[in-house]
Design a protein around this nucleic acid. Structure first.
Lengths: 203, 203
DNA sequence: ATTTAGTTTAACCAAATGGTTAACAAATGT
DNA sequence: ACATTTGTTAACCATTTGGTTAAACTAAAT
């Protein structure tokens, strides 16, 4: 079965589909465009992935599975809360700089298709925040940080890290800066954001 | 020219188009669907707005102009920095609760079409953050808040306020809570977020 | 060499889609 | 009263789109 080509047609298609879907979304993407991007015939898409919907789901799951394990790993290791915040911020921002379309893709498509999240939850490696929650509550009990619902802290961490990438066209407009300067701002945030968060929950 | 109907056909169409476009995006929306939503014939859409693109642009501009003045007003009034943060957070969150599709719509479509932001900037009432920047710098000089680039503070305020609404399907999944509980969390944030920010920049 | 199974393509198809047309109805002006 | 402009519709059209089919090609198995 295995072709001697360096990459199989199947992953070639998946990669092409990733590029197109992540740029244009499910509705904006065209099967012909994906076929062109993969350098193959349109019928071959349907041979490997029966329909646009299934191809999209494969792409989406693959994209999500790139993000989720990282999130999970950091959330559930044995670092202190401070280190967690620092590592999360540093890792996440540099990861997203490498995959700039990812967060917007995931969030946009999840909004269009909220029930999709159910399918993801049952997947193993779906991030769990239980340990993080306990850690926050412990820190509060021990008087190390100011009282805050762990849920809010979690949302705040995600928001501060992810939002600037999702909203970059808008923020560039508000701040009146070009792509180059914006990118530099994003690099600053790798430390800026964790300082901000740690300050916010300091006693 | 004016029909005696309580609302003109033109605004009726615009409202229907808003609902559909904001839910499904430019690519996902269908002209027939908008016509049905407005209770009129499809050809009438083209009579008032020549094309799908133009109808979409009217909707987008109208949506953006709902948000922008509020942002502008708060950013440029004479309140203290603390009050600004508090007011912004309180007003914005309650505003978004009333228009839940808006932020995601604007951000998604701006990502799909980044050059669109140029057109918006030239529009009057496009938010300017100059006054806010000066205010932040003043506060830092006077030793009232910890040093932070105004750009970062601005991004952080936007992120903490807007992100939870954009990413709600994802966050509901991570937090394992239902829509009702999530909504309650959002209401808490009206005060939670400003406390968080003010704490973060306290000396 | 022939079969067999998997892979790839060109050609095709039905449905959907944005947009147009021509006729009709309702106001409006004279 | 009548003509003219404005508003509205049903029917239509060209193109695009996701998907199918049947045939051709490839490489291993017999």
């Amino acid at each position: 079965m295995t072709r001697t080509k360096d990459i199989t047609a199947e992953t070639n298609i998946l990669n092409a589909a990733k590029r197109i879907f992540q740029k244009k979304g499910m509705d904006g993407a065209r099967m012909q465009e994906i076929a062109d991007e993969a350098g193959i015939n349109k019928a071959l898409l349907h041979y490997y992935y029966r329909s646009k919907q299934l191809l999209f789901e494969a792409v989406f799951k693959s994209a999500f599975m790139l993000l989720a394990p990282q999130l999970n790993k950091i959330l559930n290791n044995d670092d202190s809360l401070n280190d967690k915040i620092k590592n999360f911020t540093k890792n996440y921002i540099s990861f997203i700089i490498k995959h700039p379309y990812l967060p917007n893709f995931i969030i946009s498509e999840l909004n269009r298709n909220p029930e999709f999240v159910e399918k993801l939850i049952s997947e193993k490696n779906f991030p769990t925040i239980q340990k993080f929650k306990n850690q926050v509550l412990e820190n509060i009990e021990n008087g190390l940080i100011t009282p805050i619902k762990p849920e809010h802290l979690f949302i705040n961490i995600m928001a501060l890290n992810i939002f600037p990438f999702i909203a970059s066209p808008l923020l560039k407009g508000f701040l009146k800066i070009d792509a180059k300067n914006y990118e530099q701002l994003m690099e600053e945030r790798a430390t800026e954001v964790s300082n901000f968060i740690i300050n916010a929950i300091k006693i």
